[in-house]
Design a protein around this nucleic acid. Structure first.
Length: 801
RNA sequence: GCAGCUGUGGCGGAAUUGGUAGACGCGUUAGACUAAGGAUCUAAUGCCCAAUUAGCGGCCUGCGAGUUCGAGUCUCGCCAGCUGCACCA
């Protein structure tokens, strides 16, 4: 027997698979399809680190297993290659970002291929390829034509370091998600996508998909749907509308609060007696960044509007009006009714300013804290609402307000429209022109793709405008509508554009007439299993669901949802338990692991390292353990007998292992599947022999995890053909239980021993076995059995006195 | 602050969902082979007692209570950690 030498056999099989197109998805639509997807990587200059292969290996296992189960599997790969790091590198090194991208892609590809993933490389895509972004632009144009893309002058999150506007989703703790610089507010005219029009469906349709719960929860929170009511208050003779989720507490309103940006403040300039004070407060609030405004949340500030009085529409009581920055202009109507007895923030504000509180929901102690429980409270001091539960009162008051014409039911969302333009070079050009006469006009589809022009400098302009703005030849054009002079849009799309639909392109990657053919879309949709990072839950995952729903609405795609199942992996940390990063010096490069131990060892360890969904530290010794296991598998060839069948004494274990591996690979428990295979190998070693039939089963089960060594051994043992041509083994449930079982015996709930009984034995047989064992019998000698508990196959417990 | 999740050996982690806690791997210890071992093999390995012919001993799943014949698993109350949201009315 030759030695186990991964470096020679791994290359051999990788070449064999690719040369024979073994993993290319076929167009044979008679077979059931399975579409497994990973998040296509951003080809950074650093290359892969050991965290990348974790999700890739997991989905590779699923894909390889599905192929053995007879599916036509699509497991594609591509590059999400537009983006800032490449552009910044290009600026610093004066290289075209295209060249940087090509270089990085080549490196990533070589790294990935050395790990032996069964990607269909014939369908490789790249978001920066004009043949690809033609369709990104095409989808944007459809959105524009359907009124979902609009331009708006608005305050944007501006990163002074990246010189770019950011979407809300890209701001973390008031700082730029990428570089950590604190973001500023700047007014800019931006392209927006009306994702809020899909807010309801993006929540409701989560019911129909199989996503892990934390993903659903996070999406629901982010969309932030709340049901309440808008109510009109009369303030100095003017109608001021507020939004509340607690219309039932209307009788408890003791003051109102307006946001510092509320437009009424300026209108009331002459009526507000302390307008100077209000102006000063507004100025102060504007100077604070969003971050400061929320960080200092604990301490409420505000100014009362002297000369302004509001009327509570139910009690007709006169109440004061305040301006305070705890009310946001960007949510609801920018003004609220304050119910200090039943809202924590209002309570804090009222305490600070000595405002009265009216308890209208009994059940708490409002002197100590606002009572906000909506389950248990009962309405009091509330006229016709008295005695009702919160839920009943909400309904009744909303009806009453509607009848009176001073309010109505209203649903609000935290989700904002998506700021879609970036003032950068390395992104998809927005295919629109602005004409003096016709306004914003779409390019004809025949002019797509609108190519990214060659520029001399990739740096943004001094006022943060896109580098494209300096290209006057390119910018000045004619209006496709009237033929008059027009200017091109110089902003580009954000990185999230290309990734919002890439999974569709894989279905038919070289189609010139459509983003993919209707036939391919129908056959392959939806993605059956999509695994990716939690950090994309409110970004990529939400955005792509939105695009897909739009494409569904215009009849392009056949399903409402793009992904049937979504799972997520945990991060791999450095051996010091910290996030892997260059600066911490704890990065492990998969190339080194492959070179030292082999790709199969890397793959196996990536899966065996721990709970797939949790973060876990890398351990060099753990890697060695996996290599040791593969060596033991390899050396099974020494124990190989001529027997084709499965020996009687291992039959149960074999069937148990098939079941365990088959089931655990479906539920992200790759670690315990591997543990089961290790146990099986240990059993072969204990016997010092393995039959051909037994080894076949092991090689098949292990193949998705460690494809190279299993192919090689299959060939070495002369099992015929290749592993990838075989069928996934099946287990017989009846054979997963031994004929004689070991039953644990307890006395008074304490484990005292075991008895051997037939698997179908009843209580009487178990009792007989108990009495037959003198050591067990001794435990109950002279005592009275009060109760006998017998759970077949599980336990026997005798209660004695 | 609010919500959710999680707490199991020296470490990563198992536990058929209420039924012998610690599978599997790492590490450690002893032995074998050896010129040598950071290779390989064999055995032991939760903790505490006992041990040259010495155990079907006791204690163990963050802490404290409870339900049950039986609790890592269910309930209640603490404590700690992680994640998400963060003045969204």
């Amino acid at each position: 027997m030759k030695e186990y030498d991964p470096s020679s056999i791994e290359k051999k099989w990788q070449d064999h698979w690719e040369a024979n197109g073994v993993f290319h998805a076929t167009n044979d639509q008679t077979k059931p399809k399975y579409y497994a997807l990973i998040e296509f990587p951003y080809p950074s200059g650093q290359g892969l680190h050991v965290g990348h292969p974790r999700p890739y290996t997991a989905m590779d296992i699923v894909s390889r297993k599905r192929r053995l189960q007879g599916y036509n599997v699509l497991f594609p790969i591509g590059w999400d290659a537009f983006g800032l790091p490449t552009e910044n590198y290009a600026i610093q090194n004066k290289v075209h970002p295209k060249l940087v991208t090509e270089r990085n892609v080549a490196h990533f590809k070589q790294q990935m291929q050395s790990i032996g993933f069964s990607f269909d490389w014939s369908r490789e895509i790249n978001t920066t390829d004009p043949d690809y972004y033609k369709w990104t632009q095409w989808i944007f144009l459809q959105m524009f034509k359907h009124g979902l893309a609009y331009k708006k002058e608005m305050a944007v999150n501006w990163c002074p370091s990246c010189k770019v506007g950011l979407a809300n989703e890209e701001v973390v703790d008031g700082c730029c998600e990428r570089c950590g610089t604190q973001v500023e507010r700047r007014m800019r005219s931006q392209w927006m996508l009306a994702i809020t029009k899909y807010a309801d469906r993006l929540i409701d349709d989560l019911e129909d998909v199989d996503y892990i719960e934390r993903v659903k929860v996070q999406q629901r929170n982010w969309i932030g749907r709340s049901e309440g009511a808008e109510v009109d208050f009369t303030v100095n003779g003017k109608t001021m509308t507020i939004y509340t989720t607690r219309p039932d507490t209307l009788f408890g309103v003791t003051y109102m609060v307006m946001s510092p940006e509320h437009p009424y403040l300026a209108e009331w300039k002459d009526q507000i007696l302390n307008y100077d004070e209000v102006l000063a407060y507004q100025k102060n609030a504007a100077a604070k960044s969003d971050f400061e405004r929320t960080e200092l949340a604990k301490d409420k500030t505000g100014v009362v509007l002297k000369g302004i009085t509001a009327i509570n529409p139910v009690t007709e009581e006169e109440i004061p009006v305040y301006v305070s920055d705890y009310v946001l202009m960007s949510y609801g109507t920018g003004a609220i009714m304050a119910v200090p007895a039943h809202d924590t923030r209002d309570w804090e504000f009222a305490k600070k300013f000595g405002l009265p509180m009216h308890e209208v929901v009994a059940g708490g102690n409002i002197n100590e804290a606002a009572f906000t429980d909506i389950e248990t409270g009962t309405l009091v001091n509330s006229g016709f609402l008295n005695g009702l539960s919160v839920e009943e009162a909400k309904k009744k008051i909303t009806e009453w307000l509607t009848e009176k014409g001073i309010g109505h039911k209203k649903i609000n969302f935290k989700l904002r429209d998506w700021i879609f333009s970036r003032q950068r070079y390395w992104g998809e050009p927005i295919p629109l022109v602005q004409c003096e006469k016709c306004g914003w006009v779409a390019l004809p589809e025949s002019e797509l793709p609108l190519l990214l022009p060659e520029v001399e400098s990739y740096e943004p302009g001094p006022n943060g405008e896109s580098p494209l703005a300096a290209m006057t030849d390119w910018v000045n054009t004619t209006c496709p509508c009237c033929g008059g002079p027009a200017k091109r849009e110089t902003d580009t799309m954000p990185q999230w554009a290309g990734s919002s639909w890439y999974f569709l392109r894989y279905m038919d990657p070289s189609n010139h007439d459509a983003l993919a053919s209707a036939e391919a879309l129908k056959y392959w949709s939806p993605v059956d299993w999509y695994n990716g990072g939690m950090e994309h839950t409110t970004l990529h995952l939400l955005y792509s669901r939105f695009w897909h729903k739009f494409l569904y609405d215009i009849g392009v795609v056949p399903t409402k949802e793009p992904y049937q199942k979504r799972t997520s992996h945990g991060m791999i940390l450095g051996s010091n338990n910290e996030k892997m990063s260059k600066s911490r010096g704890n990065v492990v490069n998969p190339d080194e692991v492959v070179a030292t131990y082999g790709a199969d060892t890397l793959r196996l360890y990536e899966m065996f390292i721990g709970d797939f969904e949790k973060a876990v530290p890398w351990s060099e010794n753990g890697v060695k353990g996996c290599r040791r296991f593969l060596e033991r598998v390899w050396k099974l060839q020494d124990f190989l007998t001529d027997e084709e069948g499965i020996s009687k004494d291992l039959e149960t274990l074999i069937h148990q292992t098939i079941r365990k591996v088959s089931q655990d690979d479906e539920t992200l428990k790759f670690n315990t599947a591997i543990a089961a295979m290790m146990s099986l190998v240990n059993a072969f070693y204990n016997k010092k022999q393995v039959t051909r039939g037994e080894l076949r089963v092991l090689l098949l089960l292990l193949n998705p995890d460690a494809p190279h060594i299993t192919e090689e051994m299959w060939e070495e043992c002369g099992f015929g053909g290749h592993v990838y041509e075989q069928k996934w083994p099946e287990w017989d449930e009846a054979k997963t239980v031994e004929d004689m079982i070991t039953l644990a015996v307890q006395v008074n709930g304490k484990s005292r021993g075991t008895i051997q009984i037939p698997k179908e034995a009843g209580k009487d047989e178990a009792m007989a076995a108990f009495h037959a064992d003198p050591r067990l019998e001794a435990l109950i000698a002279g005592k009275q059995i009060v109760k006998e508990i017998f759970v077949p196959g599980r336990i026997m417990n005798l209660v004695v006195r």
